[in-house]
Measured scan of single mutants.
Amino acid sequence: NTKMVRFKKGDSVGLRLAGGNDVGIFVAGIQEGTSAEQEGLQEGDQILKVNTQDFRGLVREDAVLYLLEIPKGEMVTILAQSRADVYRDILACGR
Rank of each mutant, 00 (worst) to 15 (best):
T2N: 11
M4V: 15
M4C: 12
V5W: 00
V5L: 05
K8L: 13
K9C: 04
K9V: 01
G10W: 00
G10L: 01
G10N: 09
S12T: 14
S12D: 14
V13C: 12
V13Q: 03
V13I: 14
R16N: 12
R16F: 07
G19P: 05
G19F: 05
G19H: 06
G20C: 06
G20V: 02
D22T: 07
D22L: 01
G24E: 05
I25D: 05
F26V: 03
V27M: 09
G29D: 08
I30V: 14
I30H: 01
Q31I: 11
E32L: 06
E32M: 06
T34R: 04
S35C: 12
S35T: 14
A36G: 08
A36T: 03
E37M: 11
Q38I: 13
Q38M: 14
E39L: 13
E39K: 14
Q42F: 06
E43Y: 09
E43N: 00
E43L: 11
E43H: 06
G44H: 02
D45F: 02
D45M: 03
D45I: 02
Q46A: 01
Q46D: 02
I47M: 00
L48P: 01
L48H: 00
K49E: 11
K49V: 08
N51M: 05
T52M: 09
Q53W: 03
F55P: 08
F55T: 09
F55G: 04
R56M: 08
R56V: 08
R56W: 00
G57K: 09
L58H: 03
D62L: 08
A63L: 01
A63W: 04
V64I: 14
V64L: 14
L65F: 05
L65P: 06
L65Q: 15
L68I: 12
E69K: 12
E69V: 07
I70Q: 04
I70C: 00
P71G: 00
E74A: 12
V76H: 03
I78S: 01
L79P: 04
S82P: 14
R83C: 08
R83A: 10
A84P: 15
A84L: 15
A84Q: 15
D85E: 12
D85I: 08
V86M: 11
Y87I: 09
Y87T: 11
R88E: 13
D89H: 11
D89S: 13
I90D: 13
I90Y: 14
L91V: 14
L91Y: 08
L91K: 14
A92M: 13
A92F: 14
C93P: 14
G94W: 05
